[in-house]
Design a protein around this nucleic acid. Sequence first.
DNA 1: TCTTAAACGAGACGGTACGTCTAGTCTTCTA
DNA 2: TAGAAGACTAGACGTACCGTCTCGTTTAAGA
Lengths: 209, 209, 209, 209
Amino acid sequence: MEEAVAGRATRGRPRSERARSAVLEAAAELLVSGGIDAVTMEAIAARAQVSKATLYKWWPSRAHVMLESLFSRTRHTTEIDESAPLEEALVSQLSLVTREFRETETGPLMADLVAAGQADPDIRAALDEQWLRPRRQITTRLLRAAVERGELDPGIDLAAAVDQLFAPVYYRLLLGHEPLHDDLAATLTGQLLNGLRTGLRTGAAAPKG
Amino acid sequence: MEEAVAGRATRGRPRSERARSAVLEAAAELLVSGGIDAVTMEAIAARAQVSKATLYKWWPSRAHVMLESLFSRTRHTTEIDESAPLEEALVSQLSLVTREFRETETGPLMADLVAAGQADPDIRAALDEQWLRPRRQITTRLLRAAVERGELDPGIDLAAAVDQLFAPVYYRLLLGHEPLHDDLAATLTGQLLNGLRTGLRTGAAAPKG
Amino acid sequence: MEEAVAGRATRGRPRSERARSAVLEAAAELLVSGGIDAVTMEAIAARAQVSKATLYKWWPSRAHVMLESLFSRTRHTTEIDESAPLEEALVSQLSLVTREFRETETGPLMADLVAAGQADPDIRAALDEQWLRPRRQITTRLLRAAVERGELDPGIDLAAAVDQLFAPVYYRLLLGHEPLHDDLAATLTGQLLNGLRTGLRTGAAAPKG
Amino acid sequence: MEEAVAGRATRGRPRSERARSAVLEAAAELLVSGGIDAVTMEAIAARAQVSKATLYKWWPSRAHVMLESLFSRTRHTTEIDESAPLEEALVSQLSLVTREFRETETGPLMADLVAAGQADPDIRAALDEQWLRPRRQITTRLLRAAVERGELDPGIDLAAAVDQLFAPVYYRLLLGHEPLHDDLAATLTGQLLNGLRTGLRTGAAAPKG
DNA sequence: TCTTAAACGAGACGGTACGTCTAGTCTTCTA
DNA sequence: TAGAAGACTAGACGTACCGTCTCGTTTAAGA
């Protein structure tokens, strides 16, 4: 009798999972093979064997397709050990992002999404909420805990500090004036924690060999 | 006789200065009034009363128009006093950029150009060579001099340090998660020079009150 | 085995009469209110609260819906008195059609169906068989009987004669260069029976005063 | 001084005659090879190697393309000898149209244009003004002259008479219930001039043998 | 003064992608 | 098993810009 339970839902034909995943794959493939300009709604539809009507029904713009494509394949870069020593935890977090940007298509995807965000506030908001903010929050939590433990100066500007760790990674991704090399995570962390001045070093972090 | 003199040449009608400046102005106005998507070659031509042929003759793409528009109105942000004390010089340089991004149309212009650079290597190269590199070089020179004077640790990674100063500004410009407020320049400089750790401070730079 | 009975069959749910009549009404209303272009399968389905699948199950195209809509509301224009004198019978038949075209939605419906018939042979065939042919046959019968009674010249081309009576009505309906006024039936009949030449008149039909 | 004469003219690149004629040809070819439904703006553009923008710039709809296609290839069917005897002139005029409809693509073109005219008043008006009216006027002139010469009854309805000559041709073209055979012109003319009644014939026109 | 040649405005051109629309088909649940 | 709901593929629609191409005009340097 009950019946009522939960899952009632859908009248009519349910959304096609085939279409959804084909679209996300097509978008990623097009991006990798032809750059951002190759990722047109037209091309996605053709490659995914999906009609444009379906495309526009579920995604309002190509940037939204790319956003979902990005999120659907990278959720794991927030998984770090927050109980590790501060410097180690920070380096670990930065390393994950740096390596992913350098070694997978997440790098170009992210760069193009930041670019798309300049013309579309929705993109910008989605990027912030679903990607940047979660990562910044972890870092902020790590730093705040260290302040409370007495490791860090209580007068520091947390938001600015977080940016001094992360911003260079995105900056290089977008401008390309310097590579995202392996030591970057440790260098950024060490220089920020210890400062650049002579004689301030604790010995914990001598960047770059 | 021959005339051989220098490079002077120009037979025919000389390039119209009216057209050039009308184009640059039109581009800036369109950007401000309608966002990057309003800056089409078509619209620039119409607004500047210039034919599209002329437009394409002198600028290969709309991004190049915007680039020149950017450069034609901001050359002065490199003019700082390099003989000032290190921290003062750095704060001064960062402040100039921060304020310009926040208070003039240079901010959106720059954001859109970085975005355009993702799809067009020419833009990226031009941005780097004509805007970013000159500024980075000044900062690198300041830091290197400080190292040589013994103020800064000789082991630091100069490129990374420069990015830790500048990148947060561009990062915030592009993502908008935090404002480009007035203290930012001092905060970034202080935190990087002195580090975040407790008890390392020389007293020279207590950011943020 | 059971069941076997006679030709009745109907397993399952019987066809919905509600759906059928709602569709025909919706089609007619749409035609009147918005012209032929408003009569889309989509719109019919929406207005009749009928699913598109049902629509396509019973009618292969929108023209077929309109055809059935036409036939379902006008069967009576063939009902004339064939025993009346020739000229009177012909005028009566033409008048019925002329008036119906002018005063009801049958006019635009017919015009649009003839138009649809240009692209769809099924429509053309259905129109001919279910509307035009029955009416032409009556007229042909009237004329042939008159020939046999000696009233009409035995050398006449019956098909052409019938067209000289009916075609002008459809021609004006479709092209609209002249109205379908009240005298038209008598004029067409009189001019054709008596000819245009001077001195041939029997006096029976002086069209238009 | 002189010079001033008449028309300034074209600024800018002049309209391409190649494009214009390619479009008109493509439309006609598509119609013949695939029927009216094959004549899409898309297909015309593709076949004529013309961009859709150009197409829409000069023709507001595909029906207008077809209209111009029709007019561009058939101007000559109005050229008859108006000084010939009445019946001869009428037969000649009807024959020209009948044969053209039967033997060239003008037939289907006209049929489709009449169809298109049901949904688009512009088409209908253009058809009337540029095709039908000029032909009707010639016929009306012929008949009126005959009335004035005393050959035809002064009481006849000229508009109706003209329709009794022409309408059957279009009626058959659109409905296809009877062919547009060679004798049609003479039959229609003879039957209308002389009437169908027995004993009225002058002997001048015994249609069909 | 006259010639010459480059730069100019206007604007038409072939293309490509856009976002919307309708046509028909297919899939699931309900009556 | 008919029907309602509604998601699906296919493809034409009309628009906007793109970057290129004539045109006829304007402007200065050179003959």
